[in-house]
Design a protein around this nucleic acid. Structure first.
Length: 287
DNA sequence: AGGTCGGCCTGGCAGC
DNA sequence: TGCTGCCAGGCCGACC
């Protein structure tokens, strides 16, 4: 699943190749891709613009067009992928949802077997800011993201800390993989109510988040199912997982067995010995 | 308002 | 072998 490190991996490859290029043609093959905007309308609105920069916010790609906008947002969701191909390379492949054609003959393909991936076009900087303000919390790799930021985010919250990490409105960019990896690094149980974390735990969690995401980027992302970079190459992060998808295997820290539970409907991996649930003393009720 | 859950979607795989 | 049915999960909207 593309999370922040996977999106950033692709962005770093794409940005230098697309900067300064203009979009000569957009072909929407699957109308769901840009819904509710009709495919033809979307094609007309995106054509002819120059790509100033490709940036990222959370798991969104932001194609900054013509300086002041519009802004083309792409989200890969579960199985989406961007590929960058030569002008004469065959572009017909399975699950192709849309194609961006550039003025230098290259094409960017949006491929997505499960069809969750999506494109949004926003007219100007103000709508972009509003769009993200409504959906996304702080960027975990920004300098401004500190243990104190994290303390504000968890304050008073009762939900399991892992569920909070997955809530993009609280913190942007973390998905199922990196939530598990960050919590293991911080020795925190995924079910621990977020608001009960103490300051040393918040410090550890902050470090865990930053390390896990940074490792992910260094590894070129994790390719457990569909993720590939823009040239179709796999990342290496799946070989560096400490807990994710390692149920039954030994913990690298204590040798105990990694467990899988379902939390908030998501497969969750952790080491029961290293990540203990801290129950608050409260009257227990018979059930 | 905070938190949880179901729907979207389809390839892959377990089980018969 | 071939079929059925379930599972994965990011995000959103519905609901409590």
């Amino acid at each position: 699943m593309p999370e922040l490190p996977e999106v950033e991996t692709i962005r770093r490859q794409l940005a230098p190749r697309l900067a300064g290029r203009s979009i000569t043609c957009v072909k929407v093959i699957d109308p769901r891709w840009c819904a509710p905007v009709p495919a033809q309308t979307f094609e007309g609105l995106t054509r002819g613009h120059t790509i100033d920069a490709v940036s990222r916010r959370g798991k969104y790609f932001v194609f900054e067009l013509d300086g002041a906008g519009p802004f083309l947002l792409l989200h890969l969701r579960m199985t989406g992928n961007l590929l960058y191909i030569e002008d004469d390379a065959p572009a017909d492949r399975d699950h192709l949802r849309a194609t961006l054609e550039l003025d230098d003959g290259h094409r960017v393909l949006f491929v997505d077997p499960r069809r969750f991936g999506h494109a949004t076009l926003l007219p100007d900087r103000a709508s972009l800011d509003r769009y993200f303000a409504d959906r996304l919390g702080p960027e975990p790799l920004a300098d401004s993201f500190t243990p104190a930021t994290l303390a504000e985010i968890v304050a008073g919250r009762t939900q399991p800390v892992k569920s909070l990490l997955l809530t993009q409105k609280r913190i942007a960019g973390i998905g199922n993989i990196y939530a598990d990896e960050a919590l293991f690094r911080a020795s925190i149980h995924p079910r621990q109510p977020a608001g009960t974390l103490k300051s040393d735990e918040l410090e550890a969690l902050h470090g865990g988040i930053v390390e896990a995401l940074t490792d992910g980027i260094d590894a070129g992302g994790a390719s457990i199912d569909d993720f590939r970079d823009i040239d179709g190459a796999r990342g290496a992060m799946q070989d560096r997982f400490l807990v994710h998808r390692r149920a039954g295997e030994p913990c690298f820290a204590c040798g105990g067995q990694i467990r899988r539970i379902v939390l908030g409907g998501r497969g969750t991996y952790f080491c029961p010995r290293c990540q203990k649930l801290r129950r608050r003393s409260r009257p227990t009720r018979a059930r």
